[in-house]
Each structure stands twice: as C-alpha cells, then as structure tokens.
C-alpha cells in the first residue's frame, strides 16, 4: 500500500517536473548584427524566467547548419523548436519531420515559403507598419509649413528597405506640405548614412532646405547626425530625425537632443513565442499563423537615458 502510494507520488512528481521543465531548441541565424545578438540574449533571458531549458544552436548564416540543428532537436525529442530562418525556401522536408514527431515549430522574425500547416505560428514585426508609425510621427510633428524630407534607404532590394519605404509613404500620403525630395541607399550602415547625408546636405543648399530625415534604421541616422553636425546644423532641431530599430545608441542621441524619434523593432520575439507555445500545450489553443509584435514609438519624452541603460547590455 505504502509502496504503491510512493510509486504514484513518484510518477506524479516525475510528470510535473517533466511538464514544467520544458526543453526548447532554438536555431538562430548567427550574430551578423547587434539586433540579432540582442534577440539571442533576450531569448535566453525569457527561457530562464519561464524555467525552460533552452538548447541554442548558432547556424553562422548557413541553412544547412540550421537544418542539421533542427534534425538534432527532433532526435533529442525537444518539446518545441524556435527557428529564425536564414532564407525563406527549402524548409519543407525538415518541417515535415518535426511535424511527424509532433514537435511544434515557431518561426521568429522571418517567414518561410512552406505550407502554413508545417509550423505552429510565426512571430515577427510588420515592416510596413513600422514605416507607417515613423511617418505618422512626422505628420503629427512637422507642423503646417512646407517640409522637405530626405530618406536614407536600407540595402536596395531588401525587404525591410522596400516595406519601410512603403509604410512611410502610406502615412504621409495626402499631406501636401510633406514631400520626399531625395531618397538614396545608405546600406543600413553608419558610414553609408554619413556619406549619403553629406551629399544630401550639399544638394539641398547646405542642408537649409531640409526639414526632416527619415532613416530606415538607427545606424544610418547616427551616421547622418554626425554629417549634419559637421555641416554646422543642429540635428534634432534644424533637421528632425526619425528612424527605426531602437538600438541603444539612438537613445543616447535622443538624450542629447540630436534625434527625435525611433520605432522599436523589438528583439523580444521569444516572449510571444513562448506564450503561444504554453497556451498550445496547456489546452491546445491554436495561435494565429502570424503574431505581430508591437512597433512602439519612442521620442525624447520617453526618458531616453533610462532606455539606453536598459538596452546597452543586451548585446546590441
């Protein structure tokens, strides 16, 4: 009697520990950018907070590494898989294998071309919406006068560059006082942003004709801020600056009054992913196929110094 009780208790105990101590495999693209590094850091933090055992695999930008990692996760019998896919195609067979092993896969940040039934859900940000939030800020803050805008685009042909350009145009459409007068790629880099901004300043009467700058990412905006300062103008005052990403350094610029606003591309994709997985595991709730993260707007009024302190150790 006592023996059987003890066995039952042991089984129950075992079951609960099994249930709570989940194992999740995470196949990350690599660490090509500060944002990617921050995403990794936050995913680890989120897993730790929830008591999840995270198996991390760095693919170093190679799809074959990711496929190998996914196969090994399946072989280890993890409870779920997080995948930040390096490319969109070629995932069908490995996702099928995970599905047959009844392991739910959640895509982070980027999408794949495979059938929707092969993964549980995708967590990501809406790039067009990010551009819209940035554009809306300018619509609200440019005033009534004529405002000539210059735009620093991302790498030509990349989806963030196309979508963030589109979203911004959606937002300022119909505002006759707002006009994009120059648009050029700065390749998402600080050097690119600075060099292209210098040419904008030369072309637009030493910068006196420019009222606002829209940069597709913060790094280009930071480069442009230096170019504006070297041209003898005050960034943030003479030229309003709005950009996207919310990396720590842009908060420093905002604290110094040199940048006006940034739209956050949150590196916390894992939080919503873990929430969806938990709900799915507890009562089988099928999440929507795309979970959109919030594109939050930060301005100089949001205590940029504190935001900087909170982000600077995330690995950006």
């Amino acid at each position: 009697m006592i023996k059987s009780l003890m066995i039952t208790a042991a089984i129950c105990l075992g079951a609960t520990t099994l249930a709570s101590a989940q194992t999740v495999g995470f196949s990350q693209i690599g660490s090509e950018s500060g944002w990617r590094a921050a995403e990794t850091t936050i995913t680890r933090q989120q897993a730790e907070e929830r008591g999840i055992d995270l198996k991390f695999s760095d693919a170093q930008q190679k799809q074959e590494n990711q496929i190998a990692a996914l196969r090994s996760f399946v072989a280890q019998g993890v409870d779920a898989i997080l995948l930040a896919p390096v490319v969109a195609t070629g995932w069908d067979s490995v996702l099928q294998e995970a599905k047959e092993a009844e392991i739910p896969v959640v895509l982070l940040d980027r999408k794949v071309d495979s059938d929707e039934s092969l993964y549980l859900t995708a967590v990501g940000s809406d790039l067009v919406h990010e551009g819209e939030v940035a554009g809306q800020w300018l619509v609200d803050n440019a005033g009534e006068g004529e405002c000539r805008i210059v735009e620093l685009q991302g790498t030509t042909g990349s989806s963030p560059a196309i979508d963030r350009a589109q979203g911004f145009r959606n937002a300022i459409e119909g505002k006759d006082n707002l006009e994009i007068v120059r648009s050029q790629t700065g390749d998402f880099t600080r050097t690119g942003g600075k060099e292209v901004m210098e040419s904008f300043l030369q072309a637009e009467n030493g910068g006196k004709d420019i009222c606002a700058l829209y940069a597709h990412n913060d790094d280009m905006a930071i480069g442009a801020i230096q170019a504006i300062k070297e041209a003898g103008l005050k960034p943030g005052e003479d030229i309003k600056i709005v950009s996207i990403d919310a990396v720590p350094d842009i908060f420093q610029a905002m604290a110094a009054g040199e940048a006006n606003a940034t739209v956050e591309l949150t590196p916390n994709m894992a939080g919503p992913a873990f929430d969806a997985l938990e709900a799915y595991r507890n009562d089988g709730t099928e999440p929507k196929k795309f979970i959109q993260t919030e594109s939050k707007l930060y301005t100089q009024n949001d205590d940029p110094q504190e935001q900087y302190e909170a982000r600077k150790d995330l690995g950006y």
Binding site: E32, S33, D187, T189, R190, T191, G192, K194, D219, I222, G223, Q226, D249
Partner: peptide
C-alpha cells in the same frame, strides 16, 4: 569618421 568600430561593415 563614424566614431565607432563597425566590424561587420568597415
């Protein structure tokens, strides 16, 4: 020039 070392792009 950019007051920072960008190992990915420099």
């Amino acid at each position: 020039d950019i007051r920072g070392a960008d190992a990915n792009n420099t």
